[in-house]
Design a protein around this nucleic acid. Structure first.
Lengths: 229, 229
DNA sequence: CGGGATATTGATTGATTTCAATGTGAGTGG
DNA sequence: CCACTCACATTGAAATCAATCAATATCCCG
């Protein structure tokens, strides 16, 4: 555990980077990022923010993938979410982040000062609405994840994970997983070996196909859904 | 599983019950319930709302205890939260509830129309703030719970649970658990037998004392905290 | 063509579940 | 007041699933 956090920490948010776009936000929060956000490139495995740091910015994934997680004292890691392009994160915790966020692959983000967002929300009801919706989405995800971790077998967890991934990738039956088996294991509360074994199991059952380690075709989604209880 | 849901469903929210208190809300959301909420008595095991029902009201526990949960198709139940006096619930889901809420013991609630709350929030920034804080608290709880369910041993789960309960009961070392072993098991993602066994284990280790089944004294909180990783 | 990280597979152990029986306690009615 | 009962809790024995320990295998990347 406790993998190498190659601290190729990319440039931090810094004033001055902000592009001089003067146009007012037209379409609520979605545009806040376009208008106010400065682009940020984060290298694979670089930290975006750490647990306990002041939660000053809110981020949106443009390309790449991000994981948010917590470490237990003995090194066990629980990944709470994978953030894909379009996802917004950094709203955990009011004062300080309650998770660490890292890029899983080379990632481009835009970020906005949280205070700017809340100020905007105070004036613009639509922005406030968007913020609320995003928080609600976070909560829904957390609840889903809780359910997944609670009382499910390895097969059920993997099935749920695969279905979640195809859906979020807006694909019908093939996923290109951007994360390692270890990441998947730490997301699902399993070991890397169990993840691997379960995938081969599903492959042998002709439920999935594994053209390569990170590419998975859901050959029998019905069977997966059944496993998803 | 799928216990008797003795449908002693108490009176539903109904207009007309509302007490004729005309005073304006002074202290934000906390008072909204006092001012606008109608009291509601719910018998032990009675359902407050069901998963999928329109989320029309928000509730606050005055006395008693509430559990919110989801059922898997085969009857496995995941309890997502226990709500104690002072706790607000019913904010899950925008349109419809994503959990079922039931009283664990005879319970008194107050409830407020969600629309009334959001209308109030639109005018009163303090109320909006309170709502936001509550949602954030929900999210924090969900994240904590996720961590607990992810990669923790039975002992660690029980330890975390007991510590959570004493803290929320605002006690220092003794808890009166309002819920059954089955409820605890379904909250922690364990079986009733494992809960029982683990409690006796901790008792034998002199970490806790069990004066009666539902009363637990945390004789060695340090040891529990250590288990809490 | 290495070489290191990542993934798969195998053998074994171990914690928790499952199946099964017994114990306990609160409420009820005789 | 006691016996009875029903729900809930504990305890035991066996089975099971995932973790752990260990050995290859494969895939990138330089």
């Amino acid at each position: 555990m406790l993998k190498q956090t190659i601290e190729v920490r990319s440039t931090r948010p810094s004033a001055g980077l902000r592009p001089p776009v003067p146009a007012p936000a037209r379409h609520a929060l979605a545009d806040s990022f376009a208008v106010m956000g400065a682009p940020l490139n984060v290298a694979r495995n670089a930290e975006i923010y750490g647990e306990g740091e002041p939660a000053e910015y809110v981020y949106k994934v443009i390309s790449g993938v991000v994981r948010t997680y917590k470490l237990l004292s003995d090194g066990r890691r629980q990944i709470s979410a994978f953030l894909l392009p379009g996802d917004v994160f950094g709203l955990d915790g009011a004062e300080e982040h309650r998770f660490t966020a890292e890029a899983i692959a080379d990632t481009t983000l835009v970020f906005v000062r949280r205070s700017a967002l809340t100020a905007l929300a105070a004036r613009d009801g639509e922005v406030a609405n968007d913020l609320w919706r995003m928080a609600a989405a976070d909560l829904r995800r957390a609840h889903e994840h809780m359910l997944l971790l609670g009382r499910k077998s390895a097969q059920e967890r993997i099935a749920a994970f695969l279905l979640e991934m195809v859906e979020r990738a807006e694909e019908t039956d093939t996923v290109d997983l951007p994360m390692s088996r270890l990441d998947i294991a730490d997301y699902l509360g399993l070991t890397i070996e169990t993840v691997s074994r379960t995938l081969t199991l599903l492959e042998n059952a002709a439920t999935i196909e594994l053209p390569s380690t990170r590419r998975i075709r859901l050959a029998n989604k019905a069977a997966l859904s059944r496993l998803n209880a």
